[in-house]
């Protein structure tokens, strides 16, 4: 599907720059983290109560902090030491931060990939039809797209979740289900509503790109030829127009995965996600505790940053090699 010249561009970009390699390594690590979460996690991420005898959370390995506890009616300063049991410490209700970091990758990757995939499935056919038929059809469809664009994606997502609530459903985890690993959650919660909502607020960008491609291909000679041979519009759309628009769609999809990861984390930060096992939610847990327990929100934030950097690096690599002129909405939030 990808022409030779583009392939050689891709190779060249990969060879010459460190960045695509870095992106690939990062993304691979995060995917491995997500897939083998039950193996890598040291504790059950949902289990609470890993606190010291005074009910204080543990700091990351090698650090300590002082806090005040009530003792015999007065406040006493105590030093809380880290423990090798909890690499990155525990949060305010005593959950293991490292294990939650590992499991959080699952939610991010699931929503990022599924949400973007769904957005492609909605946006690309919409854009192809709009661009290919042109005229009045295009006018109407583009006004719909403009309307969608008039909503900031986070705001529209919030409104949709406000209507439909935020449901999640469990996907059984084979590693624990078949007894290969003990003591880990038996299923992973996919925030279903969030995934759909994220697709509903980002598909327009795919529609715009697909429309542009369809418009440019529409008048190509081979399409005219196919039409003169009696090919139906649908055949032309799927056999000629769709393959041509794939390159920019792939690039946009890569960039959008980053945007979707950011959007999901924003939603879960605001408490509108279907799962609590999410980096954004974990960041919000630390919000009141920055003064002492800085790691609670710092660690999951770093998870997001690395995941998004990985995807952006790959996106830049693809964009530089394939050079379609596209724009997408950034995550921003």
């Amino acid at each position: 599907m990808i022409p030779d010249r583009l392939e050689s561009n891709l190779r060249q970009g990969f060879r010459e720059s460190l960045l695509p390699k870095l992106g690939l390594v990062l993304l691979a690590s995060i995917l491995i983290m997500a897939i083998f979460a039950p193996v890598l996690a040291t504790h059950n991420p949902t289990r609470t109560g890993y606190l010291d005898e005074n009910g204080n959370s543990y700091p990351p390995l090698g650090t300590s902090y002082t806090t005040e506890i009530g003792q015999d009616g007065e406040f006493v300063e105590v030093e809380v030491e880290s423990t090798s049991d909890h690499l990155l410490g525990t949060n305010d209700i005593g959950q293991d931060v490292f294990s939650r970091l590992v499991y959080g990758a699952r939610t991010s990757m699931l929503v990022g990939l599924l949400g973007t995939g769904l957005a492609v499935l909605i946006g690309v056919p919409f854009g192809l039809v709009s661009g290919y038929y042109g005229g009045r059809v295009d006018d109407v469809m583009m006004r719909i797209a403009d309307t969608m664009l008039a909503f900031p994606s986070l705001v529209l997502a919030l409104a949709l979740i406000g209507v439909f609530g935020s449901a999640g459903f469990g996907i059984p985890d084979p590693l624990t289900r078949f007894g290969l690993i003990d003591g880990m959650p038996e299923s992973t919660t996919l925030p279903g509503t969030v995934t759909v909502v994220v697709a509903l607020v980002t598909w327009v960008w795919f529609a715009r790109v697909a429309r542009g491609e369809a418009m440019s291909v529409r008048n190509e000679e081979y399409v005219t030829a196919a039409r003169s041979m009696g090919a139906s519009n649908w055949t032309i759309l799927f056999k000629h127009v769709l393959p041509n628009s794939l390159t920019p769609v792939i690039v946009l999809a890569t960039i959008q995965v980053a945007a979707v990861i950011l959007l999901e984390s924003s939603l879960s930060f605001l408490g509108f996600s279907g799962t609590t096992l999410s980096w954004g939610y974990d960041i919000s847990r630390g919000q009141g505790y920055q003064r002492t327990s800085w790691w609670i929100s710092m660690v999951p934030g770093l998870g997001i940053v690395f995941a998004v950097i990985a995807v952006n690096l790959l996106g830049d690599w693809l964009r530089d090699a394939l050079d379609p002129n596209i724009e997408g909405e950034g995550g921003g939030a």
Binding site: F269, I304, V308
Partner: peptide
């Protein structure tokens, strides 16, 4: 900058 969630 483009990879950092701004709430964080």
């Amino acid at each position: 900058g483009i990879s950092t969630p701004n709430f964080w």
